[in-house]
Simulated scan of single mutants.
Amino acid sequence: MTLRYGVVGCGRVFQRYHLPVVTDHEDYTLVAACDTDADSARSVLGAAADGVLVTTSLEEFLTVGRPDVVAVCTPNDAHTEPVLAALAAGAHVLCEKPLAADLTQARRLAGAAGADRLAVNLPYRFHELVPAFLKALPEGPCEITLTFTTAGQRLWRPVTNWYGDAARAGGGALVDLGAHALDLLVTVFGRPRPVACRVDARGVEERVIADLEFPAGPAKLRIDRRSRVMGLTLEATAANGETTVLDLRRGEVRSAAGTVTAEDRRPELAAIRGFLDTVAGRPGTARWPRLRRWRCRNSSRRCTPTPSAIRS
């Protein structure tokens, strides 16, 4: 049976990430699109717009389009209404990260009826190199560093100017890239205790330095959304100085045992593929990696958040 697919929010994220996956998936047919600008939505859909209901009405999208699966790709502050409406209509929903622009909205979505049909697009936990990185890690405690840099607003401002609006975005680099970075860290090392977080501005920050404590050891998270270099690296350094590196930009795991190279050159699509495959009941769908069990070397240490500011 072919499943009916619809999207709310036909912006650049949908165009670059969701559209290529759904149009190539044999189990799905794109049937409906909802956007505040119908003409822009048709332009984004391109050849895929043929036979698709394009509307500015969420009600029409759900009642006439009748999607089985809905992708919500609206700005951060506009996730709640379409997610709740799609869940109430019985659809499976993949929401773009972060789940919402504030905790109140996020908790409302997480506690909604049908929330077991709701997922968030966080692809890096599904990266094919995560198991290789886990396997290459030395035993015992380590020091962890995750560095995430992008071109940020210089790249996205023309099509996502709301990124600079704290109310609409929910903040800046921490909620934007931090969602990916923290999810990857939690996938590999388990849940941390926060120690400190420093940002370069209030409202919409571009640079973040966060200190965390994992059972495996201390971690430093560095995010720079104004960098000229695109990169995402996770490093774990053992007491003997041996370092294991997960370099997602290059698609490599580097360790004392050698280098492992990824085959998938578009890992950012992994969660979308996995979600669609799971709903369709296809075998071999993406699975969350098995977490390594760590014992904290500083189990008595208490860690509390201490926000401060990074000097420019």
Rank of each mutant, 00 (worst) to 15 (best):
G6C: 09
C10R: 01
A132G: 04
A113K: 14
S255T: 10
T63P: 06
R191F: 13
R228Y: 11
L232P: 09
E96M: 06
Y28G: 03
V21D: 03
E143W: 04
R168K: 11
L246R: 04
V188I: 13
A286S: 00
R4E: 11
C303Q: 00
S57Q: 13
V72F: 09
P82H: 12
A179Y: 05
G190Y: 03
L118C: 02
D77S: 14
G111K: 02
L109E: 02
V188C: 07
W156I: 06
S299T: 08
L30V: 12
V52E: 04
R297I: 03
A106L: 03
R295Q: 11
T278N: 05
T285G: 00
T233S: 13
E235I: 08
T23I: 04
D247E: 15
T55H: 07
P98I: 14
S299A: 15
A169S: 14
P67D: 11
E263F: 01
G241V: 14
R108P: 08
I272C: 00
Y17W: 12
Y17N: 07
P283Y: 09
P158Y: 08
R66G: 06
L221A: 02
A238D: 05
G172C: 07
M1R: 14
R266L: 02
V22K: 07
T150Y: 07
V13M: 14
I144P: 00
T2A: 02
A86R: 09
L146D: 01
A41Q: 01
T304N: 05
G171T: 01
A33Q: 05
G46Q: 08
N76E: 15
R193Y: 11
A85F: 11
V7A: 07
L53D: 06
A110H: 10
P98L: 14
I144N: 03
L276V: 04
T56R: 14
E143D: 13
N161K: 01
G231M: 10
T149V: 05
T29H: 12
A132N: 03
T237H: 07
G178Q: 02
Y17F: 15
L58Q: 03
V7C: 09
T63G: 09
F189K: 06
G217Q: 08
H25N: 09
T29V: 15
S227Q: 15
F214P: 00
T237G: 04
C197D: 05
V54L: 12
C296D: 12
A286R: 00
P307F: 02
F14D: 04
G11L: 02
A239R: 13
C296K: 02
R250A: 14
T80C: 13
R293E: 15
A309V: 09
H79Y: 10
P305M: 08
L184H: 00
V22Q: 05
D27K: 00
N76S: 15
V7Q: 04
V175C: 00
C296V: 01
S312L: 09
P218M: 10
A112G: 04
D102Q: 08
P215M: 13
N121Q: 10
A106H: 03
A38Q: 03
W156L: 06
F214N: 06
E268M: 10
T187Q: 10
E235F: 07
